[in-house]
Amino acid sequence: MKGPVHHHAYTWIGSGSDYGTDSLRRPTNAQFSTLSVAPIEPANWLLKSPKMIKGTFTEAAAALAWFEEQIRAYAQSFDSDYQKSEAAIRSHVDGAQESIKIQRDAVGGWWMNGGSSFYSVQLVACPNFFRLEYACPQPPG
């Protein structure tokens, strides 16, 4: 891997139809880099405008705290009663902790408003284990 791993933070909340339109979520779309919709492959966030980065974390604890904060901010809006529960939130946070520990992406996504909206929270490792060829959009600093 090139350089120390850090994580870029991304969120997206938007229309369920946009989320369900694969062509909007692929880098082959001419407008991909400027569209804020969450990409199909988490590493592809690194191909989008750096303006979409919500934060950059070099410390695992800070990245995890951000991830949990994002989930808790919207949990009561999730469609599934189970996904609103403390057990589900804890499970997502624990999974993110494991992913961060091994320097991988941490990803969460939830349907809201009866399926008309989708909420995505992602911490994308950079350099990315699966896409080493992607340049870092914004080095930590």
Results as ranks from 00 to 15, higher is better:
residue 68 E to G: 15
residue 20 G to S: 13
residue 67 F to T: 08
residue 82 Y to W: 15
residue 79 D to I: 04
residue 54 K to A: 14
residue 87 A to M: 04
residue 42 P to G: 06
residue 44 N to D: 15
residue 97 Q to I: 00
residue 20 G to R: 03
residue 103 Q to T: 07
residue 66 W to M: 09
residue 59 E to T: 11
residue 120 S to N: 13
residue 128 N to E: 11
residue 87 A to P: 00
residue 26 R to A: 12
residue 94 D to N: 15
residue 69 E to K: 11
residue 47 L to F: 01
residue 55 G to T: 02
residue 124 V to W: 03
residue 32 F to V: 02
residue 35 L to F: 06
residue 94 D to M: 05
residue 106 A to N: 11
residue 46 L to H: 05
residue 53 I to N: 04
residue 115 G to A: 04
residue 98 E to S: 09
residue 111 W to N: 05
residue 119 Y to Q: 01
residue 55 G to C: 02
residue 39 P to D: 00
residue 134 Y to C: 10
residue 47 L to Q: 14
residue 18 D to W: 10
residue 98 E to R: 11
residue 79 D to L: 02
residue 133 E to L: 04
residue 28 T to F: 02
residue 21 T to P: 08
residue 126 C to Y: 02
residue 95 G to F: 09
residue 6 H to Y: 05
residue 119 Y to D: 02
residue 112 M to F: 09
residue 33 S to A: 12
residue 68 E to I: 11
residue 65 A to R: 08
residue 52 M to R: 08
residue 31 Q to H: 10
residue 102 I to F: 01
residue 87 A to C: 00
residue 114 G to K: 07
residue 63 A to S: 05
residue 18 D to F: 06
residue 119 Y to K: 12
residue 57 F to Q: 06
residue 82 Y to T: 10
residue 8 H to R: 05
residue 93 V to M: 04
residue 125 A to G: 14
residue 109 G to C: 09
residue 25 R to G: 12
residue 118 F to W: 14
residue 66 W to P: 15
residue 56 T to H: 06
residue 106 A to M: 06
residue 32 F to W: 03
residue 81 D to M: 03
residue 133 E to H: 08
residue 87 A to Y: 01
residue 134 Y to A: 15
residue 22 D to T: 11
residue 44 N to F: 10
residue 126 C to T: 08
residue 68 E to H: 11
residue 108 G to E: 12
residue 128 N to G: 12
residue 133 E to W: 00
residue 50 P to C: 07
residue 131 R to A: 15
residue 33 S to E: 09
residue 51 K to Y: 05
residue 31 Q to C: 04
residue 29 N to A: 12
residue 82 Y to R: 12
residue 103 Q to W: 00
residue 98 E to N: 03
residue 63 A to P: 14
residue 50 P to Q: 09
residue 117 S to M: 06
residue 17 S to T: 15
residue 40 I to C: 02
residue 126 C to E: 03
residue 61 A to F: 04
residue 77 S to K: 14
residue 39 P to A: 00
residue 133 E to R: 10
